[in-house]
Design a protein around this nucleic acid. Structure first.
Length: 566
RNA sequence: UGGGGCGUGGCCAAGUGGUUAAGGCACCGGUUUUUGGUAUCGGCAUUCGGAGGUUCGAAUCCUCCCGCCCCAGCCA
């Protein structure tokens, strides 16, 4: 956690924290206990990140604790692989659950006992209706449901049947245990919700000990109560479940009385956060995997080089309310740049090289020049960069017929090579196809280091690498996965995948210091953006990912068709 | 004529009867600058979904209306 993160509750105000503060003031609780309750059936994404930050931060701010609890009540969908990746992601985000790692499956015995308690109280019954029949009896949003013909079985018969369900006497789907509440309720969740279903499937943790499994509703609140969670924070779609959450806790011997609070889920423009859609992107090969740097998964963002601190900052900035929202990705990009600007070492890298020969620089000669590692951080120190007669500059930094506002190289124009010399373009060499393949320049020896003793000014400063020293690399440029802010709004979200969201650049030339770049350490390629070493990188073949581009005023001027007269 | 929520600038979001309606992102413009980066300065809602009403005074209270989201898994 960096200093930028919230350390106390004073500077963060939202309706949930207000409620907690009021509860504490009223003496309702001795402390605050929250929980992050993922189902281990997929990878965590940016929406989960918001929830993780909310729950763990609240615990930190109020001196409480936050549990990591896996909601593993559906063995048909859950896998150990996911419980591992989830733990890795939460840790990477910077949070620690200490000893408080739990699994809903740890409570199966207790949950079963509570179910029996409800049966004995005449508040739950075994229903022999099929899934289709139950649906038909449930009614619709505007019409009440009908009672199941099995609703009024005797307590003894229910007890007997429920025990036999547990004993494995019935096939999947043959019977369910339902709470006896109100088939006419306007709230669909209260129309005799299913508490237990028969699933002959082995569970990642409990193996074959059970063939009946509790539903989410019959598990969540009780798990909260067992763990003495004080504030159970979830997203808005569970608002309708709260009466049921309360009903269960009110009708069993709950060891504590947690309360559920709901906030609106996070939506981000130009992306999609739906496990189903994310899975489709992976399985149909639209991306290279769950950790593809374009994915809004935590693993994808990590691979892209987004710092955990930037993600935490983002989570804090988006706010916690109950209103539907779509946060512009630009805010995430901003958080990344703001953090990276202070931390990332600066290096020079030419992504699309154009050769430049400095004609008045002695052949065979080279020299080392001082370069600052990070102008935002003096402690980052300096390094040496090699300069020689032949260098490479960015192809886009030269224009043969340049407009007025183009502050870079053009025939007859003088620019500064960062940390090196002023150079003037004297000649343009083209191939048979008329493409520029090389530039001829002269340099001013008096401007060594980049300053002119006569006070002469240049408008542009270019990054460059020495031809004799540069190391090759592959650089992957990423853009937002979707071309439109609201993917799928016009139909299939797959149609909105931006085919150019990934462009792989081969033959990039980097200053030698980048060969030692460490995985997980961000660097800024000067004038271009923030990059990181990709896991695919090897000493023989360096591979970098662009985390986020620098803001680019020139690109804006160009986009407006500007640049002035030629 | 089901139930539950939500509507403050392009996107978020403070605001809880008396403030010139915070702040951030985005956008526009100036300054600084050996990154067209950063930093910095300035601009950007006479108005709070709409219409009535209460009040000396309303984004905040009342009434009606409009719009958007969620719920009919033996998913979570």
């Amino acid at each position: 956690m960096s200093e930028a993160d919230t350390k106390n509750s004073e500077d963060t105000r939202d309706f949930i924290r207000e409620i907690i503060r009021a509860d504490l003031d009223a003496g309702k609780h001795d402390g605050v206990v929250t929980r992050f309750p993922p189902e281990p059936n997929g990878y965590l994404h940016i929406g989960h990140a918001k929830s993780i930050c909310l729950n763990f931060s609240i615990a930190q701010e109020f001196g409480g604790r936050c549990h990591l609890r896996f909601d593993d009540t559906n063995p048909a969908k859950e896998e150990q692989e996911y419980v591992d990746s989830i733990q890795k992601d939460v840790r990477w985000l910077g949070f620690d659950w200490g000893d408080n790692l739990f699994f809903a499956s740890d409570y199966f015995d207790q949950l079963y006992a509570w179910a029996v308690q409800l049966v004995k109280a005449g508040k739950a019954y075994v229903d022999d209706l099929s899934a289709d029949e139950i649906r038909a009896h449930r009614g619709t949003l505007t019409e009440p449901g009908k009672n199941s013909p099995y609703r009024d079985r005797s307590i003894e018969e229910n007890l007997n049947l429920f025990q036999r369900m547990r004993a494995g006497e019935f096939e999947d789907g043959a019977r369910v245990l339902r709470a006896k509440i109100d088939m006419a309720s306007g709230n669909m969740n209260l129309r005799d919700p299913v508490m237990y279903r028969i699933v002959h499937e082995s569970h990642p943790r409990t193996g074959d000990a059970w063939c009946i499994y509790p539903t989410y509703d019959f598990t969540h609140g009780q798990s909260d109560a067992i763990e003495h969670i004080t504030h159970s924070i979830c997203t808005l779609e569970f608002e309708d479940h709260r009466p049921l959450y309360d009903w269960y806790l009110d009708n069993i011997d709950a060891p504590s009385r947690p309360r559920q609070y709901e906030f609106s889920r996070l939506n981000v423009s130009h992306t999609i956060v739906s496990k189903r859609y994310l899975r489709q992107l992976v399985e149909e090969g639209h991306v290279r995997g769950w950790d593809d740097p374009r994915m809004p998964t935590i693993s994808g963002m990590r691979r892209r080089g987004l710092p955990a601190a930037a993600l935490r900052d983002f989570a804090k900035r988006v706010g916690v309310t109950k209103s539907n929202n779509v946060i512009e990705v630009a805010l995430l990009d901003h958080c990344a740049r703001e953090y990276l600007n202070k931390k990332a070492l600066r290096r020079m890298a030419v992504l699309d090289p154009l050769k430049v020969v400095i004609e008045n620089y002695p052949e065979g000669q080279s020299e080392e020049l001082d370069a600052v590692n990070n102008p935002e951080d003096a402690a980052a120190g300096k390094r040496k960069v090699s300069f020689g007669r032949e260098i490479y500059i960015e192809r886009s930094d030269f224009m043969e017929d340049a407009p007025r506002k183009f502050f870079r190289l053009a025939p007859g124009r003088e620019v500064r090579l960062r940390y090196a010399y002023f150079v003037t373009c004297t000649d343009v060499i083209k191939n048979d196809a008329g493409e520029v393949v090389e530039l001829r320049c002269t340099y001013d020896p008096e401007t060594r280091g980049g300053n002119s003793p006569d006070g002469r000014k240049v408008k542009g400063t270019l990054h460059w690498v020495s031809a004799a020293h540069a190391v090759p690399a592959e650089v992957r440029l990423y853009d937002h996965l979707f071309s439109r802010a609201d993917p799928g709004a016009d139909g299939n979200f797959l149609d909105d995948v931006d085919a150019e969201s990934l462009s792989v650049l081969e033959g990039c030339l980097l200053e030698p210091a980048l060969a030692e770049a460490k995985a997980g350490k961000a660097v800024q390629f000067e004038r271009q953006g923030y990059f990181c070493v990709d896991p695919d990188s090897t000493p023989e073949k360096l591979v970098f990912n662009r985390t986020v581009a620098l803001r680019d005023k020139w690109a804006k001027i160009q986009a407006k068709g500007g640049g002035g007269k030629k």
